[in-house]
């Protein structure tokens, strides 16, 4: 049975290594500040006690006031899961650092989020639209997009 890694424990470990990164936690989730996402990702993957080597999914949700990035992580060795979230405030020119250099699996998923949600990923080697064509007006999965 995949066990949910305690958000509290993850938040404590993140805070120890990167002071000020974790802002909030719940039973299974931990919220971090968007500017620390790359460092946090590296820590989560490389810390032996956390060992989140597998990036299940990267999602973005438009909550109107802010966008929430959701990273579903999995430790194959420990059979444990963790949800890392990060809130990005604002609606224009959003950006967050890519986790491509930590988990290559983020490649296509981050491109999809840029295409459909309009969150730009810095440091991604190929940040182009994926489902829609270049020049498509707007980002369709946003709540204010009226097709």
């Amino acid at each position: 049975m995949t066990r949910a890694h305690s958000g509290e424990d993850a938040a404590r470990r993140i805070d120890e290594a990167i002071p000020g990164a974790a802002v909030e936690y719940s039973q299974t989730e931990v919220w971090i500040l968007p500017q620390y996402i790359q460092q946090t990702a590296r820590l989560l993957k490389e810390d032996g006690a956390l060992d989140f080597s597998f990036l299940n999914a990267v999602s973005a949700v438009d909550y109107v006031e802010y966008f929430e990035m959701v990273y579903h992580l999995l430790s194959l060795r420990r059979n444990a899961s963790l949800v890392v979230k990060s809130r990005i405030y604002g609606r224009d020119d959003l950006s967050i650092h890519s986790v491509y250099d930590v988990w290559k699996g983020a490649d296509l998923q981050e491109r999809e989020i840029w295409d459909l949600m309009g969150i730009h990923f810095e440091g991604h080697p190929n940040m182009k639209r994926i489902m829609l064509w270049e020049g498509f007006p707007g980002h369709p999965l946003r709540k204010d997009f009226l097709g």
């Binding site: 049975m1 066990r3 080597s53 194959l76 060795r77 420990r78 059979n79 444990a80």
Partner: peptide
């Protein structure tokens, strides 16, 4: 592979 253990229980 030692990289995964799907039978792992709480550590």
């Amino acid at each position: 592979s030692p990289l995964a253990n799907m039978y792992a229980e709480a550590d």
